[in-house]
């Protein structure tokens, strides 16, 4: 077999392989611009983060704008400290509220950012001061039962 046939077949093979990888990267996966190292970091403290995981999405109005980079615990205040890596194309006002939300009834947890109205913007390393912790199902249920128990048993005959 002559060389040019090898070259042609191998060239086609390598091209096909690279097309497959590009297909995987663009069509199957999300190659968004905020991989570790790009964008900027904001810090948010919560009393309870529930089931929030590292790399969970950070959304604003339902659009993914960043990811949770790390989760730690402040040893003095016993607050959970989440560091959020935000895409540099988005800016958020200083009075933005960070809320831990759940997608669907049993879905994954994510952080929602609700933007306020102050003209100043948060910059790299700053803290989101207003936060709302995760809804923990057991607490909700016990609160509900407690309220029920506290109600006067008017309907009972």
């Amino acid at each position: 077999m002559n060389r040019s046939k090898f070259d042609l077949a191998v060239g086609a093979f390598v091209a096909l392989g690279i097309i497959a990888l590009i297909f995987l990267a663009l069509k199957v996966g999300n190659l968004t611009g905020f991989d570790s190292g790009t964008g900027y970091v904001l810090e948010a403290r919560f009393d309870n983060i529930g089931g929030l995981k590292v790399r969970a999405p950070v959304k604003s109005a339902g659009v993914v704008v960043g990811r949770v980079e790390s989760i730690g615990l402040d040893g003095e205040t016993y607050e959970a400290v989440a560091r959020l890596r935000i895409s540099s194309s988005f800016r958020f006002s200083k009075d933005t509220i960070a809320v831990i939300l759940t997608s669907g009834l049993l879905g994954e947890q994510y952080i929602g950012l609700e933007v306020g109205g102050v003209p100043d913007y948060l910059s790299n390393g700053e803290r989101i001061t207003k936060t709302q912790s995760a809804m923990v199902l057991e607490k909700l249920i016990s609160q509900f039962l407690f309220n029920k128990a506290a109600e006067p048993p008017s309907q009972v005959k």
Partner: peptide
């Protein structure tokens, strides 16, 4: 089918690690 896939498959964690 595609949007759910894109939302959950991460290029670095899933694809690059697989490669």
């Amino acid at each position: 089918f595609w949007s759910q896939m894109q939302a959950s498959v991460d290029v670095r964690i899933d694809i690059v690690n697989g490669m």
